[in-house]
């Protein structure tokens, strides 16, 4: 895992990787679909999505509940496989689950491991990716410092507030120096002020890492913080707003 270790060192020292990712797209998908169940009960969650995500994308994925936002993000994160169509990660060089640390996922609800401290929560995925403890610890300290929650390092998740937990989840996602950050309703449980703060740190972190960012949300204010907006409806991309140079259809 030399590459991962290198990235983590790069992330922990705060330098931006030189390639920036603008060259190769992070995601490229053609007519992907995802259905659950079979026969009459089959539910089509994502349908006919064709899309390219450039290395410096900043996109909001909007749409009503049940329109397929979460499923699309899970597909992008490699947590689910498309039922049809082609899905590739050109900048990653392989499937995200084979390249741990290259995609950072932030979930809507509380997703910290309750039995681990904040610092351990951030360190663990780095260790899972094969980093040695010392560099993982360094990366974790830096990430927590960047997000302004260094003093929470030894707290347990149950001892911190929802807003703080969401920041820890962001620290966990950025600590490995990913090329793509996916955030599923990261502010759904937060009040407006905290939500705005979380978006600030998320954008800062992506800028620092040179990572692409996709945020799903139904809050127009949050969507407004991002230059692109992809509207989903009934499992498919309905509309694309904003400059087309970043997320252009193939």
């Amino acid at each position: 895992m030399d590459a991962t270790a290198r990235r983590i060192r790069a992330a922990s020292s705060g330098t931006t990787p030189a390639d920036g990712g603008a060259g190769q797209p992070v995601i490229s998908c053609t007519n992907i679909a995802r259905t659950f169940g079979t026969g009459a009960q089959a539910v089509v969650a994502v349908y006919n999505v064709t899309l390219t995500v450039a290395g410096n994308a900043r996109a909001a994925l909007t749409g009503p509940s049940g329109s397929g936002k979460s499923t699309l993000l899970h597909l992008f994160a490699g947590l689910e496989s498309p039922s049809a169509g082609e899905l590739r990660w050109p900048a990653l060089g392989g499937h995200p689950l084979d390249e741990p640390g290259r995609v950072g996922m932030i979930f809507q609800g509380p997703s910290l491991l309750p039995a681990l401290t904040v610092a351990e929560n951030v360190i663990l995925p780095l260790q899972l990716a094969g980093a040695d403890l010392a560099s993982a610890r360094q990366a974790s300290e830096n990430a927590l410092a960047v997000l302004g929650i260094a003093e929470l390092a030894s707290s347990l998740p149950e001892e911190i507030s929802g807003g703080q937990a969401q920041r820890v989840a962001i620290a966990r996602a950025v600590a490995s120096g990913p090329s793509l950050i996916l955030a599923d309703e990261p502010t759904g449980q937060l009040d407006r002020a905290t939500a705005s703060l979380v978006m600030d740190v998320l954008l800062q972190a992506c800028d620092a890492l040179g990572a692409a960012l996709i945020v799903s949300t139904h809050d127009p204010l949050i969507a407004g913080r991002l230059p692109q907006r992809w509207e989903m409806s009934d499992g498919t991309l309905a509309d694309r707003l904003g400059p087309s140079s970043i997320g252009a259809p193939r």
Partner: peptide
């Protein structure tokens, strides 16, 4: 739930 989180964080089957 913890195992699902771990898996989502990229834990390999072995891990």
């Amino acid at each position: 739930r913890n195992l699902a989180i771990l898996s989502a964080l990229g834990a390999k089957p072995r891990q």
